[in-house]
C-alpha cells in the first residue's frame, strides 16, 4: 500500500477570513554626513514614529549606512526583498516610497491582462449536450 499524505480539505486564502499584510519588515538606512540623505534624515526625525505607529504589523528598523545613499528595504512574507534608493528625495517623497513598499506584495512585477484570478471551480459547471433536453436539429 502506498503511503499517502493527508489531503487538504481547504486552501488558505489571505484576506478571505483574516488578513495578513505581506510586508513584514521595513529597513531604513541613512547617512549622517551625505547630502543625499537630507530628506531621509528629516523623515526619520519627524515622520517615522507616526508611520510606525500607524503600521503596527510592520517591523521597522533604522540603521546607518555611512558614505552611501539612503535606502529603504522591504522584506516580505514570500521571502523576497525590495529596495528603493531614496537619494535626494524630500520627506514627503520618502514617505510615499515607504507606503509603496508597505502596500506591495513582494512579488516580481508582472503584466496582468486578466482582471480576475480564481482557484474555485466553475460555479455553473461545464455545458453538456446530453443533459437539459439537448439541441433538436
Amino acid at each position: 500500500m502506498v503511503v499517502q499524505g493527508i489531503r487538504k480539505a481547504t486552501v488558505g486564502q489571505n484576506g478571505v477570513g483574516a488578513f495578513i499584510l505581506q510586508c513584514k519588515r521595513l529597513d531604513f538606512h541613512y547617512c549622517d554626513w551625505a547630502g543625499s540623505s537630507k530628506g531621509m534624515n528629516s523623515f526619520l526625525r519627524n515622520s517615522l514614529t507616526k508611520f510606525a505607529a500607524l503600521n503596527p504589523q510592520v517591523e521597522i528598523t533604522v540603521s546607518p549606512r555611512p558614505r552611501r545613499h539612503p535606502v529603504i528595504k522591504g522584506t516580505y512574507i514570500n521571502g523576497r526583498e525590495k529596495a528603493i534608493c531614496v537619494r535626494n528625495l524630500t520627506k514627503e517623497q520618502v514617505l510615499q516610497k515607504a507606503e509603496l513598499l508597505r502596500d506591495a506584495n513582494g512579488e516580481k512585477l508582472k503584466k496582468v491582462t486578466k482582471p480576475v484570478k480564481s482557484i474555485n471551480e466553475s460555479v455553473r459547471g461545464v455545458w453538456s449536450p446530453y443533459h437539459d433536453g439537448g439541441i433538436h436539429v
Binding site: Q13, V16, V112, P115, V116, K117, S118, I119, N120, V123
Partner: peptide, 13 residues
Amino acid sequence: PYLVTAGDTVRLP
C-alpha cells in the same frame, strides 16, 4: 463588470 466568486482576486484597472 467583474464575474467573481468568493475568494477570487481582482486586479482593478
